[in-house]
Design a protein around this nucleic acid. Structure first.
Lengths: 186, 186
DNA sequence: TAGTTCCTATTACAGCTGTTATAGTAACTG
DNA sequence: CAGTTACTATAACAGCTGTAATAGGAACTA
């Protein structure tokens, strides 16, 4: 036989595409401008990824990986509680484009659940299982929702003072609740 | 002069377009299919609304009106607290398409703040000012975020049991906090 | 009734979309 | 070296996009 496939090239294109999508969004993604930004042509992308839909799938999967990786590194880098650590990196202005992409994809996925089923399956679960795993599922659910909602508010209004005050109040309430249930077992 | 403009026709088209967008989404809206669904042609829509961009603007404004109207009617129809009332109608499966559209538009607006500035300006404010106006801005911010986040979770996972348990826990925490600050004035 | 304006319908345009076909070149294997 | 395969590049396709131009008919005013 002959020339084996070069996995590096594919990954290179994929990484570049993720960067492009983080910067330019995914709802209006078009192959030709993407290809130009990557220094190639649209047919090359199709040769490597088969179809646009499959490329988008892979992109979202990569985005998911980036989010989880960031979550883990932030968790390890700080001494704060899970909630505080998550909020710190999630609300970091540097992560703005990535979080915006997250919500953009979220909106699309809710509209086309069949197309983005993979994204929907993990959008909540990834947080429930790892960085925000609280004592129980209920508190974890509440924590995820609050972080998500406050982040949405922050990205929308930019009113960091008000949003972070709400975040601190929530952390306070949650801590009180944990103490309460701990001191009265059963 | 001659034949005066007929405002009914325009409103008729606009209402129909809102229904269409609630059902089919707005991120991939196209004039021709929309026109067919309304029993007209694309140029007619452009004649009435000038350009697609302006039509979309008006659509989102109408969506905003529908959300606020629903909020008010639900508030009046139940005897529950602001938080509980809002959650009741917002999580009603019948409002699913409308809420999905809300999040879809939210994602687009975050990506193109210039295009959807009007939507962004009111997305949080509408809730802060009216249906969820709590004792203070901080609690209101927290309540909005939690409702938003839990709704997102519900639409994503469909796990009503877990989500509503979290909602009740949040209401409990908030009530306790209100009592606490009331009994210790200053 | 004459004149003017609104509304609708048809046709057409240039530009973009994802995708396919074709061909050429480079890199590896036996 | 010969043969096969991976990758790239060019051109072209049918279909869709928002929008403009044009013309016909309907409804109102003076």
């Amino acid at each position: 036989m002959a020339r084996p496939p070069d996995p590096k090239r594919r990954q290179e294109l994929l990484d570049g595409a993720v960067d492009y999508v983080v910067a330019n969004g995914i709802s209006e993604l078009s192959l030709r401008p993407l290809a130009v930004a990557l220094g190639t042509q649209a047919p090359v992308l199709l040769h490597h990824f088969g179809t646009k839909e499959r490329l988008v799938e892979e992109l979202l999967s990569q985005v998911r990986d980036r989010l989880r990786a960031l979550g883990r590194s932030a968790e390890a880098g700080t001494r704060r509680s899970g909630l505080g650590a998550v909020w710190t990196w999630v609300s970091d202005p540097a992560q703005g484009p990535l979080m915006r992409l997250f919500f953009e994809a979220y909106g699309l996925a809710l509209r086309h659940p069949d197309r983005y089923s993979d994204f929907l399956d993990h959008a909540v679960r990834d947080w429930l299982d790892e960085p925000l795993a609280a004592v129980d599922d209920i508190s974890a659910t509440l924590a995820i929702a609050t972080v998500t909602g406050l982040l949405l508010d922050l990205l929308t209004t930019g009113d960091r003072l008000r949003v972070e005050a709400a975040m601190e109040r929530f952390a306070f309430l949650l801590r009180w609740h944990a103490d309460q249930t701990a001191s009265v077992p059963d």
